[in-house]
Amino acid sequence: MLSQQLVNGLVLGSTYALFALGFTLIFGVLRVINLTYGFYFSIGAFVALTAARSFGANIWVALPLGAIAAGLVAVVADWILLTRLRRAKAGELSSLMVTLGAVLALYSLMAVFIGTDIQRFPFGFVDNSAIEFSGIRISLVQMLIIGTTLVLVALLFVLLQRTKLGLMIRALAENEDAARLMGINVGLTVAAVSFLSGMLGGAAGVLIGLNFNAIQPFMGEHMMLRGFAVIIIGGLGDIRGALIAGVLLGVLEVLTAGYISSNAKEAVAFTILVLTLWFRPVGLFGRAQAKRA
């Protein structure tokens, strides 16, 4: 049973990590806790769902569609909400507040139009069979989630470390004014980062929606609370930290529910979060100044 529980934890943790990647990327580069991120997650899932329903798109079409749509929404949202504040150098709190208001409006607007009933991808959209070996069961969708998370982390590293865009993004993360002086097109780089993080959020929405069969407008909000915990524990802006913190949190939650009490499961994330804030606010893996993207 322990091995099955560890697999459960790994799967759950991967969903947390997958969700947190784009969230922490935005902070790492743009220094903004962008709460509209939760909406990218919801909209990604809904676009994929609509594609699957209206023209029978399969997962390999629906997934990129959801991701790209969320990426575009992210670019527009960032442009409307944050350009002005960035120009005025208004600081973290103003950005936090403006995205907080925006995300509430966006979720609620979505709820008004499509209702809050949960929905699911059509039966048979993906092969939902499970593989069993030595008493451990894992479904194909769950393996897809773990695989996608690892691939995306690897791709992000390559992108940031080995490409010209990556160099521009890292320069922007280091210091906006210096980046501008070096001739980097800051507006374009910001848009690229928004698009990337939106895509990550959208892809997470599709896969997690597929796994849990509970797609509804506020799904991003429920995920957000775990997202906060993961990016703080992993260190704000730290992609590798988010991966490790996500998996760690998932495993701890499952083990708590499995071996201590399911009543305590809800409290795990926030207990670790508060402890981190007290004793190690730069995150478990952070340096004194977590500046890495």
Partner: peptide, 18 residues
């Protein structure tokens, strides 16, 4: 076993029950 009404993962509780 308990869960939250907005939870989406019940694997830990169900594995225990299994």
């Amino acid at each position: 076993e308990t869960f939250g009404s907005k939870d989406s993962d019940f694997s830990a509780q169900l594995t225990k029950i299994k």
